Computed example of a mutant assay.
Amino acid sequence: MADTPDTPETREERIEVALDLIAHLEHEELALSAVVDRIETVTSDPALTREILDTAEMRGLIDRDGARVRTRTGGTFVRFESQVVTREGEFDCRRCGASISTGHFVRFESGELGPFGSSCVRKVTGRE
């Protein structure tokens, strides 16, 4: 796997990147499982996933109602033209684990998330 130096490493960096991802969810309402699927591109630690969801709720990014999550960011979404960059190399998709030669990386203020394959980046950002 190619070196990706901007990938969040510390717990705090992972939380902030996951919160940016949540803040950019394209749908107004999603199943909790769909939100967790996106968070799992940042961490597979269940305790950290809970902390991310709790922090997102405390910061007013989402409202949770059982198995549903409603976003409160009002039309914020990932802009493919400016926030998604591609790099050529040997990568493993952060979502599905497939080997890919073109990595798609999502840039947020808090850091960069990726690499993803072309279909997984669309799923993570809510375009599919």
Rank of each mutant, 00 (worst) to 15 (best):
S110P: 03
T55P: 01
T102F: 00
T41R: 12
D63W: 07
L53Y: 05
A98P: 15
E26F: 05
L61W: 01
P46G: 00
R70L: 14
I62D: 02
H104R: 05
A34M: 01
G75Y: 10
I62K: 01
G75A: 14
E51S: 13
I62W: 01
S118Y: 11
A2P: 11
C93Q: 01
G66F: 12
Q83A: 09
H27I: 04
M58R: 12
E81N: 08
L21R: 00
R87D: 02
C93P: 00
G66P: 06
L48R: 00
V124G: 00
G111Y: 08
S119I: 13
L30Q: 04
T49K: 06
E81S: 14
E81Y: 09
D3K: 11
P5D: 13
H27F: 09
L30H: 02
Q83N: 12
G114F: 01
T125F: 03
F80P: 15
F116E: 11
F91D: 02
V85R: 12
R127L: 09
G74R: 12
E29R: 10
E128G: 08
D20V: 05
E40D: 09
A18F: 07
F77K: 11
F116G: 10
T49C: 08
L53A: 04
E81L: 11
L113D: 05
R70K: 15
E88C: 01
E13K: 09
L30G: 01
A56N: 02
T43P: 04
T10Y: 12
C96I: 05
M58V: 14
R38H: 07
R87C: 00
R127N: 09
H24W: 02
S99M: 07
D54M: 09
A31N: 07
V17L: 04
R11Y: 10
I15P: 06
V85I: 15
V106M: 11
S119M: 12
R50S: 15
L19F: 12
P46F: 00
S110C: 08
S110R: 09
A67Q: 14
P8T: 04
E90L: 06
E12I: 10
R64H: 00
T10H: 14
T76R: 07
T86R: 15
C96K: 03
C120F: 14
S119Q: 12
T7P: 03
D45N: 08
D45I: 02
V78C: 10
V35L: 02
R122H: 04
V35N: 00
S99W: 10
R70N: 08
T102K: 04
L53H: 04
